[in-house]
Amino acid sequence: MSHISKIEVAITDLEALKNACHRLGFEFVEGATTYRWYGRVVEPEKYPLPEGMTVDDLGKCHHAIRVPDADYEIGIVRRNGNYLLLLDYWDSKLKNRVGENGGRLKQAYAIERTLREARRRNFRITETRTEHGIRLTLSA
């Protein structure tokens, strides 16, 4: 062992996000300009908006993701080279499928992004399920 790093995932690659949706059984709606949500902000002090976002920005997006059986959708907003995920957790079915803070979608994105780059660099790859997630082992 040489070193261990922790990484906070930022979504910057739309192709990997599309592959992540495919992995999870979600539908990526390219070019969608709106996404379904509750329609008004409730308890903003308890659920603050993402940095730089205003109430008027909610419901608008550059792309969207549809989650099977969920009433609301995920909005994807391009900002400063990153893609922000906007979703209304009032829909418990959406929350259950996507995970707290979009964790499962970020996980699938990180897997797909890593796999693509690892293949491009000719690593041998194994994917295994662990107690708390997925382990990708890249061997040179």
């Binding site: 040489s2 995932v9 964790g103 996980q107 708390h132 997630g133 382990r135 890249l138 040179a140």
Partner: peptide
């Protein structure tokens, strides 16, 4: 064997561990 192990948790947290490297080359 040189390996890079990427643990991606269900909450989206990513942990990268390098194995089999000597010295700072693992960072690069």
């Amino acid at each position: 064997m040189k390996q890079i192990v990427v643990d991606i948790r269900d909450d989206g947290e990513v942990r990268i561990e390098t194995k089999g490297f000597s010295g700072p080359v693992c960072l690069a």
